[in-house]
């Protein structure tokens, strides 16, 4: 596992079945924003970044049947990252470029998994899975329960203060936030096995 959280092969393998719409939906929900943000971070304008993300996913969709989990060949995300990089360069080549973009910068993007760029992308991916999972589970909770979790676990307020604000007992806040956390963890683990939290390099 050498640190990099790998997408569970099962989700990717499910994509081999073109009728598995749930798998395709999960796939696009997770990876489209990920590639979009990657393109934005490389200076692509909003609409261009959308196009890039769309095209990367289409490219992956077209080739995913040929992808098999194989530690020798590297991770699925590494593969996706490579496709994204090459497509962004292509994109600039075709002249549909944005002025903030610098193709040389893209060419210098390191695809080596140990590079800072790849690490950043790994972290961005983990973050995206958390965001995606949080979105998915939120409707299952009452608003006070969610807030108990969000204010204490994410915003970093003390349990006592949040209990006061929400008019709940301290014990109730603990129960609420741990319930949300457990569900969040389960949801994230459907996509990635282990998480590791590092500072996202600026």
């Amino acid at each position: 596992m050498d640190g990099a959280p790998e997408t569970r092969a099962s989700l990717i393998l499910r994509l081999h079945d073109r009728d598995d719409l749930d798998a395709w939906q999960e796939f696009s929900e997770i990876y489209h924003p990920l590639v979009f943000r990657l393109a934005r971070s490389k200076g692509f304008q909003h609409s261009d970044a959308l196009d890039v993300a769309q095209e990367v996913l289409l490219r992956v969709a077209g080739a995913v049947e040929r992808w098999e989990p194989d530690p020798e060949k590297g991770t699925f995300r590494g593969w996706l990252y490579r496709i994204a990089r090459n497509l962004m360069i292509d994109f600039l080549e075709r002249g549909r470029r944005s002025p903030l973009c610098d193709a040389d910068h893209l060419i210098e993007m390191q695809v080596d998994p140990s590079s800072l760029e790849s690490r950043t992308f790994d972290l961005a991916f983990q973050r995206q899975v958390f965001l995606w999972a949080a979105d998915r589970i939120r409707p299952a909770f009452q608003e006070p329960t969610w807030q108990a979790f969000w204010q204490t676990a994410v915003v970093g307020e003390s349990v006592a203060v949040v209990a006061e604000e929400l008019d709940m007992s301290v014990g109730a806040v603990y129960i609420a936030r741990t319930r949300v956390m457990q569900k969040l963890r389960t949801e994230v683990q459907r996509v990635i096995q282990d998480v590791e939290c590092r500072e996202v390099p600026a």
């Binding site: 973050r127 676990a153 457990q182 939290c197 996202v200």
Partner: peptide, 20 residues
């Protein structure tokens, strides 16, 4: 104990880091 039962400390850290 309840916190830990829901998820170990790295999960709490990640949650804070990634969702903030």
């Amino acid at each position: 104990r309840l916190d830990l039962l829901a998820a170990d400390s790295s999960w709490w850290e990640c949650t804070r880091e990634y969702l903030s």
